[in-house]
Amino acid sequence: MIIAIDGPAASGKGTLGKRLAHHYGYRHLDTGVIYRAVAYGLMQAGQDLRDEAAAVAVALELDPEKFGNPALKSHEIGHAASVVSAIPRVREVLLNFQRQFAADPPGAVLDGRDIGTVICPNADVKIFVVADPKVRARRRTLEAQSRGEAADEAAILADILARDERDQNRPIAPLKPAPDAHLLDNSQLDIEGGVRAAIDIIEAVRAGRQRG
């Protein structure tokens, strides 16, 4: 089974994906980490984030063993990743990697912003996660502070709104729910509530297919 998790409510989404993968015994890939790794590689090399050739070169040399680098979680890298992810050739290079991950047994949970629409359009279950931008900004602020980072909540909110607009209007793989995606609004849910709601959606889909 392939479970696709998309939506603008990125904060906590990776945790949701990990929890679902653990629950079902599947593998998990936070696809945002891939783009963060490309952005990080460019910044470490002093390259322009919009330099297509340089970005593609970094994407081709990605090492999955380095996806756990704590530096990839920073607010700065998150913003840079949004810029890099808008480059069509970078998305093309990383497409096969993500699809292969999804196809390998026993099953996979992938989360990002175009899983159900582009990466895995035939995913068994698609969940589109949303939350009020102010709630998301507050959550990200607390996450940053928990890592010992300084965080300006107003600046984070402005960045969230700008990123959503940029991702929703980009010509390649815009952020939008797949026609058969299930909406999950976690504005008022903690991670436990979000996990329970997602499991309810998945089990309802599975039950429907078994009856069919």
Score class of each variant (00 low, 15 high):
residue 104 D to C: 09
residue 136 R to V: 01
residue 168 Q to T: 15
residue 100 Q to W: 04
residue 81 A to N: 00
residue 111 D to M: 10
residue 198 A to C: 04
residue 116 G to N: 07
residue 163 R to G: 08
residue 138 R to F: 02
residue 133 P to T: 02
residue 134 K to T: 10
residue 113 R to H: 10
residue 189 L to C: 06
residue 154 A to I: 11
residue 130 V to L: 02
residue 141 T to E: 11
residue 108 A to D: 05
residue 103 A to E: 15
residue 198 A to N: 03
residue 80 A to P: 05
residue 103 A to G: 13
residue 189 L to P: 03
residue 118 V to L: 07
residue 174 P to F: 12
residue 132 D to M: 01
residue 123 A to N: 07
residue 95 L to G: 00
residue 102 A to I: 08
residue 190 D to T: 09
residue 141 T to M: 15
residue 122 N to S: 13
residue 166 R to F: 12
residue 105 P to M: 10
residue 188 Q to A: 14
residue 177 P to M: 11
residue 110 L to S: 11
residue 193 G to A: 06
residue 162 A to C: 00
residue 174 P to H: 14
residue 180 D to C: 13
residue 194 G to N: 07
residue 115 I to V: 15
residue 200 D to I: 04
residue 174 P to M: 15
residue 159 D to I: 02
residue 157 L to Q: 04
residue 160 I to A: 10
residue 80 A to R: 09
residue 159 D to V: 02
residue 183 L to T: 06
residue 107 G to T: 06
residue 85 S to T: 09
residue 163 R to E: 12
residue 105 P to T: 08
residue 170 R to G: 04
residue 79 H to S: 10
residue 130 V to I: 04
residue 102 A to D: 06
residue 78 G to Y: 01
residue 154 A to Q: 15
residue 130 V to H: 01
residue 128 F to I: 02
residue 202 I to E: 13
residue 186 N to Q: 05
residue 137 A to H: 01
residue 119 I to Y: 07
residue 92 E to C: 04
residue 109 V to C: 02
residue 181 A to M: 12
residue 85 S to E: 06
residue 180 D to H: 12
residue 178 A to I: 14
residue 187 S to D: 02
residue 188 Q to N: 12
residue 189 L to I: 12
residue 134 K to A: 15
residue 83 V to G: 05
residue 106 P to F: 14
